[in-house]
Design a protein around this nucleic acid. Structure first.
Lengths: 84, 84
DNA sequence: ATAATATTTAGATATTTGTCTAAATATATA
DNA sequence: TATATATTTAGACAAATATCTAAATATTAT
């Protein structure tokens, strides 16, 4: 739960998640969408991956990232119990 | 959205929110539940309040805090659109 | 094999954050 | 009015975080 909130507590990472909602993308394509260096984006991707919000798959020279929405179930439930 | 994620990105604050789900409490009562100084708890309450997650009402000498679940609607919708 | 491309790792730095103690403010009570 | 109680504000500090550049690693193409 902690890593999930941590991962989502950053505007850039939330935008990455929203991008991946539309379609899978490789690291370079993702980085091109932001005015942030590639190493920084790589770091953000790492945090999202540790939180299980995204998965990565090597495709030759590229690494393709995908959104994993199943982990959001936990977050959803946490919020719903608050609303009772 | 930013302040909401920021507010929830802390275990202590999430626990405060969970406490207030059960019943309204004043600042002292909340602080008594944690091994953290009162000023620190006061600071956490301030962050939760700025995020609109809680409201406060002066009751004489005390200040009573309540959960505001309506703001969670935004969070819920954000998550739901990700799940499409 | 060499060069080019894609991505990550390493290390540095400035900013943000969570915590503390001490002091200030506000209300209630003796 | 003086004292006790409840809470916040102020200021300091250590730890965490987001960012950068330079270098390393891995794959593809010439």
């Amino acid at each position: 739960m902690n890593s999930l909130f941590k991962a989502l507590n950053d505007e850039t990472r939330r935008q990455i998640v929203e991008l991946l909602k539309e379609k899978d993308m490789n690291a370079g394509e993702i980085a091109d969408r932001f005015n942030i260096s590639k190493p920084s984006i790589s770091h953000h991707l790492d945090i999202l991956k540790r939180a299980d919000l995204i998965t990565s798959e090597k495709k030759g020279q590229f690494i393709e990232y995908s959104l994993n929405t199943s982990i959001l179930e936990d977050l959803l439930n946490w919020i719903l119990t608050l609303k009772k």
